[in-house]
Design a protein around this nucleic acid. Structure first.
Lengths: 93, 93
DNA sequence: ACTATTTTTAGAAGAAAATCAAAATAAGGA
DNA sequence: TCCTTATTTTGATTTTCTTCTAAAAATAGT
């Protein structure tokens, strides 16, 4: 299956295409092709972004026949949240 | 005064030195020199990181005589929070 | 005016990231 | 087996970041 590449979640979130992918996956899982269609980038480039999101565990992938289905796996965002919370203590709503 | 350079807050947060600066400023304002001393980087490099944090409004700076005093300005983190909250709805604690 | 202190800016080198086109892989069907 | 579809990997190019050294700017004291 695809190769994992990156582990730094902050780096993964720094790219707007990857953040957009996460937003798209919020509604439902998408195939790699569906995701690629949403951007003015080649499928190869989007595939590369997906590899990075996989690498830090923000998405998971599952094969169904020829297609790869990507879905959200946001447990990893906890780390980011934990950092941010350090700066908004007292803002409990 | 110093020149502003960057506006992308996600990009600013992607660097571990800059995140560390934010953590240091959490306790109290620091001079540029104090901050530089915390890292194994030249003062010029740390100054550059500070310029980026300034550029996206995560810190503010004030001059006192020869020294520049940096302090936290985390209102900008709201944008990041807003994004993250989209993924943890239902996790209200 | 000169000097010392603190910090930033300018310029350059190296490393890392984003992107594309082309080739490779995986799976299914004729 | 050969062909088609879906996606990834490879290799190269370009752009963007990080970092340094050296020089410049700002301020205060003598």
């Amino acid at each position: 299956m695809p190769k994992e590449v990156k582990t730094d979640i902050w780096g993964a979130l720094a790219d707007s295409t990857r953040r957009e992918v996460l937003l798209l996956l919020r509604s439902r899982p998408h195939t790699a092709g569906e995701l690629a269609d949403q951007f003015e980038l080649t499928a190869a480039t989007v595939s590369h972004h997906l590899a990075i999101l996989r690498g830090c565990g923000l998405v998971r992938v599952e094969r169904r026949a020829q297609t790869l289905i990507y879905s959200l796996a946001t447990e990893g965002l906890e780390e980011v949240f934990a950092f941010l919370r350090l700066f908004v203590r007292g803002k409990r709503k």
